[in-house]
């Protein structure tokens, strides 16, 4: 499937380099996210997928290269402009990041109360609509501590879409969920994306789920994009890195062994440095 080139991509990452505490995380990363698509960014643990979301959200500033969202270079925006841009983005944290001192209703109402001066009855209606979308209208009076992992992620999703953003970023949305909750989240991401006309970026290492919902997949490793393509492309490719990741092979280009001196040498010298 060819990617449509007619419209400007919503997110464009160009020649991105970023190091944290002197450890390079990205060297030369290039990727784009088309409007209206669900794009999955995949990679092993520690490949900086969450860092990438922080760079897109402007919480981190790249060392080199640019991140453009909706035509604006994120790293160079003033705080005010950045906050303006963020109002049009939603983000779903792995830990849900619900405010523990507010109940479900108030959590979803939070962005509306902070950013709009809508009358109370309108907020009430809007919150119930968002909660209905994620199927948790009945749980509005519960507090975050009373919710299961899957439920709190759905509440967080309702909150992320509270202001009808143009884009939602999902950080490991499938991690740590039971199969049913996982199925619910998979369905919600796809349905909300299409029904609300949003763009979705899903950072994950769950191959099956990602292939199930993504229009386009980037495989990130070693600080750059290793492979990209539609789910079908990715599964058919014979590039060894991709095959190892997609099939979950323990050894391959990503070595099973952490770099070490020769086994025999190590045993024979037998000294701890």
């Amino acid at each position: 499937m060819d990617r449509p080139k007619s419209t400007e991509p919503l997110v464009a990452v160009r020649d991105l380099a970023f190091a944290r505490d002197g450890r390079p995380i990205f060297r030369d990363l290039n990727l784009t996210v088309e409007r209206g698509s669900v794009t999955a960014i995949m990679g092993g643990s520690g490949t900086g997928k969450t860092t990438l979301l922080s760079l897109i959200g402007g919480r981190l500033v790249p060392d080199r290269g640019t991140v453009e969202v909706a035509g604006e270079v994120v790293g160079s925006l003033s705080r005010k402009a950045l906050f303006g841009l963020r109002r049009r983005m939603g983000m779903l944290f792995q830990s849900s990041a619900l405010l523990t001192d507010l109940d479900v209703f108030e959590n979803v109402a939070f962005p509306m109360r902070e950013h709009t001066s809508l009358p109370e009855f309108l907020i009430h209606h809007l919150v119930l609509m968002k909660l209905e979308l994620v199927g948790l209208r009945g749980a509005r009076e519960l507090f975050p501590a009373e919710l299961s992992g899957g439920m709190s992620r759905r509440v967080a999703l309702a909150r992320a879409i509270a202001l009808d953003p143009m884009m939602v970023m999902y950080d490991e949305p499938f991690a740590g969920l039971d199969p049913i909750s996982m199925g619910v989240i998979v369905k919600l991401i796809r349905e909300l994306n299409d029904a609300l006309g949003m763009t979705s970026i899903v950072v994950t290492h769950d191959v099956v789920e990602a292939c199930g919902i993504a229009d386009y997949i980037y495989l990130v490793g070693d600080g750059r994009v290793i492979a990209q393509g539609t789910p079908a492309d990715m599964q058919e490719t014979d590039a060894p890195e991709v095959r190892q990741f997609m099939a979950g092979l323990p050894d391959g280009p990503v070595a099973f062994h952490y770099p070490a001196p020769g086994y025999l040498d190590d045993l024979l010298t037998g000294e701890r440095p």
Partner: peptide
Amino acid sequence: DGMEMMAVD
């Protein structure tokens, strides 16, 4: 962090 991302300082 979540608040920051919701554009709330």
